[in-house]
Amino acid sequence: MGDEEIQRRKALSFAQAVGFEPLPRQLKLDEIPQSVKAKLWFLVHSEIHASSKSRGDLYEPILSLVKNFWVSYEHRMIDEFRSSRQDVINAWKPFFAESMPWWRTLDFIQWMLRSLESADFARGVEHVLKSEMTAYRLYEGTTIIPVATPEEGAAIFNALDGLTDPASQPIRAHLLQAAKELTGGNFAASARESISAVESYVSSATGKKDFSKAIYALDQKKTLHPAFKEALIKLYGYTSNEEGVRHPLLTKETAPVTEAEAVFMIGACASFITYLQRTFDQAQKFELGATAHRLPNS
């Protein structure tokens, strides 16, 4: 195993590295790993300790925050309020338990972001969400938003479901690798593998290695909409023109591909593959049926 492969695996779980988790974390909406919950709790726990005395009494800014939580978030009576450090830890820690639904954890974090109004805490939360490659990011320091849409995740699964025969394995391998690289934060490599999956499909379907010629050859088999055909060619051109995307070994600089661009690429390329499969598989079946109909009875 080469050094490059070892470095790649360091950024992935074992399941991701061997292909048992095909969907990148950025597209896994409606969930967050326990590792994220643990790191978010570390941030919250640190804020509690930073605003408490050695004997456990709380002071500002956490004291006001805890009162706000007690009344506005938990809807409990203020005369029952308890302000010791351990009482707060006992009340807040369950939001980060493995059994706690993901949305309750993020809801609590967003409430704390808006109530605490701490730039340092916001930077910590953003770092956790981003470094763990979750499907969520922090917007303007107070609002948690998704990176992608459910449709983008579904596009990858739809493409993989259609790539089960032996001839499709190279295409499938590129798409799975794109997902792994995206999870590992290697955005240029993910974009490269995404377009390579489309390239592998059109090459195997036409026998032509040149991408543009392969697309036009497909167009001869079944007419593609001109705008769709040009979109494929321009998408390939983007990865070819962006330094370090298509030819990473020929440049020492990292290709300037953002996470958002890599997420778009894998979703778009997976959708392209599914569309091309359905279009040309149906066309091929029609041709075979027409040929069989023309054959004389024996």
Rank of each mutant, 00 (worst) to 15 (best):
I195D: 00
P170Y: 05
A50T: 03
Q177R: 03
V263R: 08
R82Q: 14
A155T: 04
P248V: 13
Y238N: 11
L235A: 08
V263T: 08
W70P: 08
R82I: 08
S204L: 05
A217P: 07
P256L: 01
D87A: 14
F157S: 06
V66S: 09
K93T: 07
A283Y: 14
Q169D: 06
T223N: 14
H225G: 03
F187W: 15
A97C: 10
S83R: 12
E259P: 11
R123D: 09
F69R: 06
E243Q: 13
A268H: 06
P146F: 06
A189Q: 09
P101L: 01
M1E: 04
R25F: 05
L224A: 06
D30Y: 09
A179D: 10
K37H: 03
G56H: 05
Y59L: 14
S196I: 01
A191W: 00
Y59E: 08
I144F: 05
T223G: 14
W41Q: 02
A97D: 09
Y275H: 12
W111G: 01
I145G: 02
E287Q: 12
P226I: 02
V125R: 00
T291W: 15
V71S: 12
I48R: 01
A173H: 05
L218C: 11
D79T: 04
V147T: 07
A214S: 15
E80V: 06
E47N: 04
N241K: 13
L250G: 10
Q7C: 08
L65A: 07
N90P: 02
G184Y: 03
R294F: 12
A268R: 11
D107S: 13
R9L: 04
P256K: 03
I233N: 02
P24I: 00
H49W: 12
H75P: 13
G162I: 07
R172N: 04
R172K: 09
A159S: 13
L218I: 07
H75T: 08
V263L: 05
P296C: 13
S52I: 08
A97N: 15
L27K: 07
F96N: 01
S54P: 11
L182I: 12
S194R: 03
T258Q: 13
K39I: 03
F69M: 15
R123H: 10
V263P: 03
T206L: 10
T291Q: 06
T279F: 14
S194L: 02
S99P: 11
Y136N: 10
S35R: 06
A290Y: 04
L40M: 05
L163I: 03
L29R: 05
S46K: 15
T142I: 09
H293Y: 11
N68C: 13
V125S: 02
N158Q: 13
E261L: 08
I171E: 00
R114M: 08
E140L: 11
A119H: 09
Q277E: 11
E47K: 07
M133V: 04
